[in-house]
């Protein structure tokens, strides 16, 4: 797996997450206002050059976007057929530029910094009774249990293969999901026994 975050530092790593997000928003707005085909193409090539220079030596991460290529070609063809080449190239260029810029932000910002940058966005949720503690608990739970679920599923698949020699069928998913719901009850119990819900009722 290619991790979206680039561990090797670039100059862009030192720029604050909030600034990068703001720049991304402004540039994306700029691109939607740019209608001239040639201008768009130049801007996109500039973005591509900027991208390649900034993450010099880590171009393999572009492979993450490989599944998009046939899709972009399909969209381009459909549009060229319906409204002409120029429009087709313009809309593809717009997409590629924005994907690359957004990817740069992700490549150079660690997840925790990004979460911090999002905190002001999450704060209004307090009004409907969701506080940051609950959000950070939920995030931690996802990161903690994703590999647990994957491992559990792999074990079930292996047991199935051992008995039948075939790939696991969808049928196996039903008891697995029922078990996840029961696992959730156990985990909630463990959280409560350490005072999670009582803490909230005191607030």
């Amino acid at each position: 797996m290619i991790a979206p975050y680039l561990t090797q530092k670039t100059w862009l790593h030192r720029v604050g997450a909030g600034h990068k997000l703001l720049a991304l928003a402004v540039i994306s707005l700029g691109f939607t206002q740019l209608y001239d085909g040639r201008g768009l193409l130049v801007a996109t090539l500039a973005v591509l050059a900027f991208y390649l220079v900034t993450i010099f030596g880590h171009w393999s991460r572009l492979r993450l976007y490989a599944p998009l290529v046939p899709l972009l070609i399909g969209i381009g063809a459909l549009q060229a057929y319906a409204s002409g080449w120029e429009l087709a190239i313009a809309s593809i260029a717009r997409l590629v530029a924005m994907i690359l810029l957004a990817d740069l932000v992700t490549a150079t910002t660690p997840m925790l910094k990004m979460m911090d940058a999002l905190a002001p966005v999450l704060r209004p949720l307090r009004r409907i009774g969701v506080d940051e503690n609950q959000v950070s608990l939920a995030v931690a739970l996802v990161i903690r249990f994703m590999p647990v679920l994957l491992n559990e599923w792999t074990k079930r698949g292996e047991a199935w293969r051992a008995r039948t020699g075939r790939r696991p069928p969808l049928r196996l998913l039903a008891p697995f999901v029922a078990d996840i719901l029961r696992l959730a009850d156990h985990v909630a119990e463990a959280l409560d026994s350490r005072g999670f819900s009582t803490k909230r009722s005191k607030d």
């Binding site: 939920a138 739970l141 679920l149 696991p168 909630a188």
Partner: peptide
């Protein structure tokens, strides 16, 4: 608490499903 855990575990399930070996 139980709702939060269920919400999180289903988010984890959606994530894990992106990595499941292919099902028949």
């Amino acid at each position: 608490t139980r709702d939060i855990v269920r919400i999180s575990l289903f988010a984890a399930l959606i994530a894990a499903m992106g990595l499941f070996p292919r099902l028949d």
